[in-house]
Structures are given as structure tokens and as C-alpha cells.
Computed example of a mutant assay.
Amino acid sequence: MATKYNFLKPYTFKNGTTVKNRIVIPPMTEAAALENGAVSQDELKYFDIHTGGAGMFITPVLNVSNDGKGFEGEPSVANDKFMPGLIKLAHTMKQNGTKAIMQIFDAGRMSNSKILRGTQPVSASPVAALRPNAETPRELTEDEIEQIIEDFGQATRRAIQAGFDGIELHGANTYLMQQFFSPHSNRRNDKWGGSLENRMRFALEIIKRVQKSVDEYADDKFIVGYRISPEEIEEPGIRLDDTLKFIDVLADQPIDYLHISMGYAWRTSLNDKSDDEPIILKIKQTVNNRLPLISVGSIEKPADAEKVIDAGIDFAAIGRESIREPNWVQKVELGQEDSIHYQLSPTELDSLGINSAFLDFLNSMNADLHWVDKKEAKDNFDKEIGGVEGN
């Protein structure tokens, strides 16, 4: 086994849980669940192929309530009827010691009435997202806010009972937890909005409710993570100063890690171009060893992951590269780095568990999959699945 990389070393959380290495597969939407939100056989096939190497594997996001659904093909943890599929999913992911983490969320205003089958999307305030064709959401009532918090607690219970090793709260990527924190989407003047302290409240209450489920249903080694996006470009919107204050509070909450969602691990501020310090290092300083951090974004080669660990970040997440190369960790361990695939051929899709729904979603997100031959890829799509159209 190759031992020259620090990312191959195990990590032990404060709760005593040990993960076998510092590589994480982050949550990546594959849009392949059944229409009602149940786990599909295609999803199980994909996870069976891609698990077993990383220390932690985080699922694509699951909605905690029916009205929290964000896109077609999204798996759900909103009802006990989904438990049989969730049990199979947890079992499939937990191969060779990989820890299975379920990411959970409510999409809020980032959904629409078509996806919600005629129901108007909701958010902290009736403010539409700044994106094409965005619908104006309905403002949540106090009782509805409390119900969503309860939904997160029940989703956590189901994750525990299904056999997952942890959950990750999706407080990033402009979804409902971030919407309450953002001054763009949250214009409330009650205890859920206005001041920075009030805009933190929704997330902190969810964490409190999740911990109640952990205390009641899990052993003391269940992992609770939180994913956060550092900035928004909207005006008004989340700025880094507020995020660092929020992270300072989060670091003292009953969570086990903080996952920083960025497209590039070493990204600097989107709003202050004069600041050339990577955001992840600012967050590391704020956290001050109170929580482990996961860094994600364009980490592809072993040297990329090692650079993250050498900077004092605890985990490196490989996203799109893990789609192309499901045996990335295993090949590094065996000293077979030269055989790692960094490009994708259309002839490999089935062997990688990539079905047409997943492929459509990746195309709609303009994901750069590093095709071996882009013309070959297009010709193959046209031939095999009748072309790829964005959602």
C-alpha cells in the first residue's frame, strides 16, 4: 500500500468514529430516483460501483418533506414508506469500511410548481431567486417553519434506522437553510429574520432538533455534518464577514464537521477582488480546530488532494473525478496512479453506472466531464439516447 500520502491516513472524530482515510465523495445529484422519490435500482448500481474506496461517501441530497423537493429524480426521506430502499442504499454504500452519509434538505424557492405538482414553492420571504423563470415563493408561516424543523428531525431518525453512519445538513447552494440566512431571500421582521442572529436561528434550531433524534435513536458515533456556501453575489446577499461569524457559532454546535461548498477549493472572495487569501484558509482560522473541515472543488489528482491536507484541512472531496474513476483511492493505495482515468469515454457509461437521467442532469449543469472525444460523445448520445437536453 502506498503510504506517501497523508490523505490515506485515518481520521477520528471527537465522538470516536474513525474513518479509514481523508478522501470524501461529496453529494452529487444523479437524478435517477423513481418519480415518487424511492431509491431506484439504477441508483443502487451506481453506488455499488463507486463506493468502497473513500473514507466517507455522501449521498445526493434527499428532501425531508414532499414540498421540499427541488428537482425530478430526487430521492426522498420524507416518509417511512421509503425505508426499504434507504436500507438497501445504506448497505450498498457501506462497503469496505466506507462511511455512508445521507445529505438532507428542503429546496425552498429553488423549486417550482411544476416539480411540486401544482404547489407553490415556499421560502423565508416572497422573493424570487435571481435566475431565469424563477417563481415567487410563498412566505412560510411560523407553524410551517416549526414543521420543517420537525421534518429534519424525522429524516434524521429514518437515516439512523436505515443504517447510515451520519447525515449532512445541506445549508449551501441557495437552498432553504441558506435562504433563511441570506438577506436577499429573508426579508422577515420576526424572530426568523432581520438581524444576523435571527437569520442564523433556522439552521441552529434544525441542528438542535437533529441532535434530539441522534440522542434518541443513534449510538454515540453517529456523524452530523453541515454544508455551507460562503458567499452570494446577490445584492443584498451573504457576504464573507457574516459567514465567518456564522461559522464561529456553528463550530460550537453539536455537529461533527463543516463542508465548504465551492467550485474551486482555493477560491478567493467573489465580492472583494482585492482579497487574495483563499476562503478555506479564512474558515480554517475561524474554526481554530474546533471542527474538521471538508474542502471540495476541482480536486482531481492525488497531488491536488494532498495539497488540501498539507494546508491543514482535514478532508479532501473528489467529485466529478470520482464519476470518471470509481477506483481512485484503491489505485493510489496500490501505487497505480498512472492507471487513474481522468477522462471519460461514452463507451464506459454503463460500466460506471451512469444512466441517461444522470447524464442529462450533468449536461444541464454544464459539468465538464473531460470527454475523451467530444464529437464521439455527442454522436453516441444522439445514437443511444436520442440526444441530451438540459432540464
Results as ranks from 00 to 15, higher is better:
D256F: 06
I238F: 06
K245I: 01
G263N: 11
Y257A: 07
I238H: 08
E231D: 10
D256M: 02
L240K: 12
D242R: 09
E234W: 07
H259P: 11
I233P: 00
S229C: 09
D248S: 14
K245E: 11
E231S: 07
E232G: 07
P230R: 14
D252Q: 02
P254K: 08
I247D: 06
A251N: 04
D248P: 02
P254V: 02
M262N: 03
P230W: 11
I238Q: 06
L244T: 13
L244F: 13
L244M: 13
M262G: 04
I260M: 13
E235Y: 14
L250V: 07
G237R: 07
D242N: 15
L240M: 15
S261C: 06
D242T: 02
F246G: 00
D242A: 14
E234P: 04
P230N: 12
M262A: 08
D256G: 01
H259W: 13
I260L: 15
L244I: 14
S261E: 04
T243Q: 00
L240W: 14
K245T: 02
I255E: 02
D248M: 05
D256P: 03
D252I: 00
L240N: 13
Y257T: 01
D248N: 15
K245R: 15
Y257P: 07
E232T: 07
L258S: 04
E231R: 05
A251K: 13
D252Y: 00
E232P: 06
L240P: 12
Y257I: 03
R239D: 13
F246W: 14
Y257C: 09
F246E: 01
I238D: 09
E231F: 09
T243Y: 00
I247M: 09
T243E: 00
I247E: 09
M262V: 14
